[in-house]
Simulated scan of single mutants.
Amino acid sequence: MTQANAFTTTFQNPKLRLLNGLKAGSKPVMTFMGLSSVRTAQIVAQTGVDSIILDCEHGNISDDSMHNMVAAIAALDISPIVRIRAPLPDLIKRTLDTGAHGIMVPQINTAAEAELVVKYSKFPPYGLRGQGSPFPGLAHGLTIPQYMKSANETLLTCIQIETKEGLENVDAICAVDGVDIVFIGPNDLAQSLLGYVPAKGDEPEFVGALDKIVAAARKNGKWVSRLSNSGKLAKEHLNIYDTVALGADMKAITMWFQNELQDVKA
């Protein structure tokens, strides 16, 4: 059975800023947040970003904070995406029940792992996701019946390719029905391929890996994205990628203080 999906949906919802930007080809910009703070989430949501990825893999965001931050971000008409820590059914269910506009799953190494993510991200008949939470509709501006009708074709399922094994299987992973976005984790990918981070950016093996992932995503009709560590790099990357994640809250704070303190102490 071919799944209803984000690429072909005709369901119109102005609150789904990231999905709408991807479909329009407007090159939306995301950013990561790893700090547990509703107020910080609100501040970042008003900077002009299109989506905020709550990092529940490496950040210090608790389950309770995840719920509150998703609600706060969505209330400002920015798309909350949650990066979970592993492709586990209970984490997928719990995350989507916050009302997140999508999930990001790290270190997908095989097509079977990608299929599991899709299975537990979709309601029947396409998957095994259960329904019971009153919260998702709130973050989508919908009633629960409306949400149930539209979720399978509007939620964004994003998987990360960031290991040597994932790279070897990238074409099969990208071919999985129900995967919407393929996101490159350049630091973990560099560590896996080169044995160090960050990549200099011109290593043939690393550059070849990036090209291979982009080509597999394009071949299989998926959106493709990556982390960008500066605005200048993000602008370059958007010539190739459909969306990028521009840095992170913790890095932004660190860089601001380092730069300003250099001026103070000069």
Score class of each variant (00 low, 15 high):
Q46W: 02
G48K: 14
K93C: 09
R85V: 08
G185I: 02
L19R: 04
K149E: 00
K235F: 02
L167Q: 00
D50N: 11
N68H: 15
A4H: 00
G21L: 06
L233K: 15
T110I: 07
N229T: 14
L116V: 14
N259Q: 14
N20H: 12
G208S: 02
L16Q: 10
L155V: 14
V105Y: 11
G185S: 08
D63H: 03
D64Q: 14
L88D: 14
I92L: 15
P145H: 07
Q262V: 08
L88S: 13
F183N: 05
G166Y: 01
R39V: 13
T110G: 03
L227K: 07
N60P: 09
A245S: 15
L142S: 04
M66N: 11
A248M: 13
A175L: 09
K15M: 13
A252D: 08
V197A: 10
V197I: 14
G231V: 12
M66D: 07
L193H: 03
P125C: 01
F123P: 02
G132V: 10
G231K: 05
G130D: 12
E236M: 15
L142A: 12
F135Q: 09
P80N: 11
T98K: 09
H237C: 04
A217P: 12
R83T: 15
L189D: 05
V49P: 02
R218Q: 14
S230W: 10
A75T: 11
E168N: 01
M1H: 00
N229V: 14
H101L: 04
A45Y: 03
E165T: 10
G48C: 06
P186R: 05
I213P: 06
N109F: 00
K235R: 14
G34W: 03
D202E: 15
K251D: 15
N20E: 10
G208E: 06
A41D: 07
V29G: 01
T2F: 00
T254C: 10
Q160C: 06
K164Y: 02
M30D: 00
Q3K: 00
G21F: 05
A266D: 08
A190G: 13
P28L: 02
T40F: 08
I92D: 02
W256C: 08
S79Q: 09
